[in-house]
Simulated scan of single mutants.
Amino acid sequence: MSKGQASRPKLSEALFEVLVEQELAKGPVAHGWPDHVAREIYGRIQPDRAFAAPPAAA
Rank of each mutant, 00 (worst) to 15 (best):
W33G: 00
K10Q: 14
D48M: 09
P34F: 03
L24V: 14
S7I: 12
E23C: 06
K10T: 15
E17T: 01
Y42K: 02
A57C: 10
S12D: 11
A53G: 11
Y42V: 02
K26V: 06
G43M: 00
L19C: 04
D48T: 14
G27Y: 01
V37K: 14
H31T: 07
Q5E: 13
G32S: 11
P34Y: 02
K10W: 12
G43C: 03
E13V: 13
F16M: 14
G43T: 00
P55L: 03
Q5S: 11
Q5I: 05
E21F: 06
A57S: 13
G43W: 02
W33A: 00
H31E: 12
Q5W: 10
A30R: 00
E21C: 09
E40A: 08
G27K: 01
I45N: 03
E21K: 10
A52Y: 01
E21L: 09
Q22E: 09
V18Q: 10
K10F: 07
G43L: 05
Q5F: 12
D35C: 06
L24D: 01
Q22C: 11
Y42L: 07
I41N: 02
D35V: 08
V37R: 14
H36I: 10
K26G: 09
Q46T: 08
A53P: 02
F16A: 15
P34E: 12
G32F: 05
P47E: 07
A58M: 01
A25V: 02
V29L: 05
G27F: 01
K3Y: 15
E40D: 07
A30F: 02
G4N: 05
P55T: 04
R49Y: 00
A58F: 01
A50E: 10
V18K: 10
L24R: 10
A25F: 05
P9W: 05
G4M: 08
K26P: 04
G27V: 04
L19Y: 06
L11E: 06
H36M: 10
H31Q: 14
V20N: 02
P34A: 11
A52W: 02
P34W: 04
A6F: 08
P28V: 00
R8S: 15
Y42N: 02
E17Y: 07
R44N: 13
P47T: 03
P54F: 04
P47K: 03
A56S: 13
L19P: 00
I41W: 10
L19I: 04
F16T: 13
G4A: 07
A6P: 03
H36D: 15
S7G: 15
L11F: 12
P9F: 03
A14D: 15
A38M: 09
P54G: 05
I45F: 04
A52P: 07
I41M: 09
E23R: 01
D48P: 03
Q22F: 03
A58K: 07
P28Q: 07
V20F: 02
V29R: 01
D48V: 08
R44V: 08
V37Y: 08
A6Y: 12
P55E: 08
S2N: 14
R49T: 04
A52M: 08
W33Y: 12
V18C: 06
A6K: 12
A30S: 11
G32P: 02
K26T: 03
P9R: 15
W33R: 05
W33N: 03
A38S: 12
R44T: 09
Q22V: 00
G4F: 06
D35G: 07
I45M: 14
A25Q: 09
K26C: 11
K26I: 04
E40I: 04
P9N: 09
